[in-house]
Design a protein around this nucleic acid. Structure first.
Length: 576
DNA sequence: CTAGGGTTAG
């Protein structure tokens, strides 16, 4: 009976609810032997059905008596479409042992997976198999290869495959085009664009976003006006271009003008406001969107997390879990939430989040691991951070930076320096946050000369130190008693020093009982942050240390009259 | 049945 019910359900293209019913029926009744039929129908008819979990797909595959090439291929494609790229590739490898010859279907899906995770060796071995099994002339396979090499930045090889193709179609041309656009070769891209025998809306959109990425919005706009037909993606490409060059009002005007909007439009707008630090406008856009999906929540939570509004990030996370909303979070949600936790320096949520992630079957990937590294490092659990760091598939700039910053904050200068050198050895180049980490490390152990040389070396990396970097240097020099140098450094700053920079000098003056510079520093602090009482207390303690009790007393009385008694710590560290 | 463009995370 169950089988016949399943049969009738499987006759049609499935809705999400029907697919859910099928999933339940199969699981409850253990009907895995219905195998290829079901897996095909479920996976093909509902390719966007994300509620089917990876484990479920594996379960079916595992219970199949005799999975054929087609069942394997469907599964690989399914995983590849649901951002489970490593899993897709690993299934492709498993498939090799059990079937004599892969299908072009499986090959193109696996190539796509390799392209998305930048798995070069994987794609190249598939390319070798393409030759071995004689798929060289299949347009789908060739196009997937062009796309793979394009995405990896090997436009030369992509071009070689492309030139050997006999039956090029629009998709093949577009893949080649996007390769040149991705590598920033606008000239080649334009010549390919002109050469194309047929252009479709994708070709135009690619060109527009290519110019957008280069910051050439005039050209993008010209193409936008010229194109014969526009779809939502065309408008989105314009919005995204304006967002990238921080022209948020222009982005908004396109957003408002477009005839129809989709999730991408909303997300782009929210992330645009987020990048400009305009959290309120982002929230306004978020609230306007009627039916909110996972990605929209992710974008808004990320916005809060990136703009140091950790509490609101966690509140929104809780909101999406409420029964009336009930949206299941994914890896990206957790990455933002973990980041929010690390800003709060709060380990309380972490074990809960960890078990919740396990419960949902969310596996660890490099992004998530890096978020956790950041969290553990900032909370002082350096060893835990190190373990995660060692387990990373690929250590990139952000991972190294999180580790270096963590070691820096926790006074493990030698580790930080070692990591910094290791990073340079593998040709990963530091950014401003990396330098914050390494300078903090030098600061913690009081290595003044090394720190100073490092600060100077930023220029060699094409980086302009921010006020925060100056702040660390002032702190470093100041603590070492080199107050005049610290003061000179502040005066040499190309930008306006913020209160934290002066605060570092003030703190140093209080350590070394320097009234003269202390007063100067304090004056600036009072001006910049009149409500922060810590600066007054510091100055008072300087007065006290040289016996100017009256001055000290009048400052302290002043404080008590304002109702402040506590002395807050002063912080000049920017979150990464 | 497969391949190309626009969005989110550390």
């Amino acid at each position: 009976m169950v089988v016949s019910k399943l049969g009738s359900l499987l006759n049609h293209s499935l809705t999400v609810n029907q697919a859910k019913q099928i999933q339940a029926l199969i699981l409850v009744n253990g009907l895995y032997h219905l195998e290829p039929l079901i897996i095909r129908q479920v996976l093909i008819s509902t390719p966007h059905f994300s509620q089917i979990t990876t484990q479920y797909v594996r379960l079916i595959l595992h219970h199949m008596q005799n999975p054929d090439v087609f069942s394997w291929s469907c599964t690989i494609r399914f995983l590849s479409q649901h951002n489970q790229f490593r899993e897709a590739f690993s299934l492709y490898v498993q498939m090799q042992r059990l079937v004599s010859c892969p299908s072009s279907f499986a090959i193109s899906s696996s190539l796509k997976a390799c392209a998305r995770i930048g798995y070069e060796m994987g794609g190249i071995s598939i390319h070798a198999q393409v030759h071995k099994f004689g798929f060289c002339g299949v347009v789908y396979v060739q196009t997937a290869l062009v796309d793979f090499y394009s995405k990896l930045g090997s436009t030369g090889i992509a071009r070689k495959v492309f030139d050997e193709m006999v039956g090029k179609n629009v998709v093949s041309w577009n893949s080649m085009l996007s390769g040149y656009l991705r590598s920033g070769d606008l000239a080649m891209a334009h010549s390919v664009f002109d050469e194309m025998p047929k252009k479709d809306v994708v070709s135009w959109n690619s060109m527009i976003s290519g110019y957008g990425r280069e910051g050439n919005m005039e050209q993008a706009c010209a193409l936008f006006r010229l194109m014969p037909e526009r779809n939502i993606a065309s408008w989105n490409a314009m919005i995204s271009g304006y967002v990238d060059c921080r022209k948020i009002e222009l982005a908004r005007s396109f957003f408002d003008a477009m005839p129809r909007r989709n999730t991408v439009s909303w997300i782009t707008m929210i992330s645009g406001y987020s990048k400009c630090g305009d959290v309120e406008s982002a929230r306004e856009v978020f609230d306007q969107m009627g039916e909110k999906d996972l990605l929209l929540y992710n974008a808004m939570i990320a916005c809060y997390a990136q703009n140091s509004r950790s509490k609101e990030a966690l509140q929104l996370f809780n909101k999406m879990l409420e029964p009336d909303v009930n949206i299941q979070p994914d890896k990206m949600t957790f990455a933002s939430v973990i980041s929010a936790c690390s800003q709060l320096g709060d380990l309380r949520f972490v074990s809960w989040i960890d078990s919740y992630m396990n419960q949902l079957g969310i596996g660890m990937d490099d992004h998530l691991a890096t978020a956790l590294i950041d969290l553990y490092a900032k909370c002082g659990s350096i060893d835990k951070a190190y373990n995660l760091f060692r387990g990373l598939q690929k250590k990139d700039l952000v991972a190294y930076t999180a580790m270096i910053l963590g070691c820096g904050i926790n006074g493990r200068a030698n580790d930080a320096i070692k990591l910094f050198e290791e990073m340079m050895d593998v040709q990963i180049y530091p950014n401003l946050v990396t330098f914050t980490g390494i300078l903090t490390a030098y600061n913690h152990v009081g290595l003044v000369e090394e720190g100073y040389n490092c600060f100077i070396s930023m220029q060699k990396h094409g980086l302009v130190p921010s006020a925060d970097h100056y702040g660390i240097m002032v702190d470093l020099l100041g603590r070492a008693g080199r107050l005049d140098e610290a003061y000179q450094l502040i005066k040499s700053m190309p930008m306006q020093p913020h209160a934290g920079v002066w605060g570092a000098l003030l703190l140093a003056c209080s350590l070394h009982n320097n009234v003269e510079l202390g007063e100067i520093a304090a004056k600036h602090c009072f001006e910049l942050e009149p409500d922060t009482t810590g600066y007054r207390s510091l100055l008072a303690s300087i007065y006290a240390s040289v016996g100017r009790w009256d001055d000290a007393k009048s400052l302290r009385t002043d404080l008590q009259e304002k109702g402040f008694t506590k002395i807050p710590g002063c912080s000049w560290m920017e979150q990464s």
